Each structure stands twice: as structure tokens, then as C-alpha cells.
Amino acid sequence: MLRFDIAPVCSNAYRFQATMSFAIAALYLFTPYKWVAFLLAFGGLLRGFVSPHKCVSYKLFEGITGKFDWSKKINAGAKMFADKIAGIAGLAMAISWVMDSGIGVIPATAILVFAFIDLATGFCAACWAYGAWYKMKAA
């Protein structure tokens, strides 16, 4: 479902956001700094459930891409869906850490893999699933 109630977002700024998600997942998996999951959860939930335009990191990355004329505007719906997934995964990672459970490595590994694919190729698996769901639902 296309979101016309929210201004379009910059897809290249979201690639920078994927880089941040990748870095957070790597820190979570390979260092003792598990608290970084709260950053992923907060950012993902803010961008996914409120608006990407309210997020400081998105504003920064949108400014950078605009300065270098890399801005490519797309509909916000699919990216907000991806942010909801990232926010929920970050929340699961954070809760897992607080409860001293190792289950948080599962969402962290998924974020690590899919964020790397997005930042390296520009292919957003959650965005693809979002579009496929609505195409299948319409048929």
C-alpha cells in the first residue's frame, strides 16, 4: 500500500540507514556492547511507526545525499515497513540482552545479513516482501 500521507523518502539515505543497522548488528554480535540494540529499536520504531522525517539520523543522511545530489525520492510505505521490522528485531535483541538470553543473536544475524545486502546492492528484502504482499493481496 502506497503511503501518500507521508512525504516521499530518499532511498539513498536509507542505504546509509542500512549501514547503521549493519554496524549496530555487528556490534551486538561481536562485542560486549549489547545495549546498542536499543538504538536500533528506537530508530526503527520511530521511523516505522511515527515518520522517517522525525528521525535525526534520517534527516542527517537525507541532508548528506541532497548535498551531493544523490537524492532519489520514493514512496515511504515500503521503507516504513522495513523500519517496523528492524525496530521489532532491535526490541527483541534488547529484551534478550536484558533477560540474559542468547536468542537475540537470531534477529541480530538477520539484520546483519539483510542490511548488508541493502547497503551493498540497494535491494531491500522487506521492501520487496511489502510489495509482493500487496500484489498478491490485490490478485
Rank of each mutant, 00 (worst) to 15 (best):
M1V: 03
M1S: 06
I6Q: 08
P8K: 13
P8T: 08
V9E: 10
A13I: 07
Y14V: 01
Y14A: 01
T19Y: 12
M20T: 07
I24N: 04
L29N: 07
F30L: 08
P32C: 00
W35D: 05
A37S: 13
A37M: 14
L39M: 09
A41W: 08
G44W: 10
L45V: 02
L46R: 12
R47P: 13
P52Y: 00
H53L: 01
C55S: 12
G63K: 15
T65V: 06
G66I: 04
G66N: 14
F68S: 02
D69K: 14
S71L: 03
S71Q: 13
K79I: 01
M80A: 07
F81G: 02
F81L: 05
F81R: 12
D83S: 15
K84P: 11
K84C: 13
G90A: 00
L91V: 01
M93L: 03
A94Y: 13
I95S: 02
V98K: 15
M99Y: 15
S101C: 05
V105W: 15
I106Y: 10
P107F: 06
A108F: 10
T109I: 10
I111A: 12
L112V: 05
V113E: 04
F114D: 01
F114I: 02
F114A: 00
A115I: 03
A115L: 01
F116I: 02
D118C: 09
D118N: 11
A125Q: 03
A126W: 15
C127S: 06
W128G: 03
Y130F: 14
Y130L: 12
G131Y: 15
Y134S: 00
K137V: 05
K137E: 12
A138D: 15
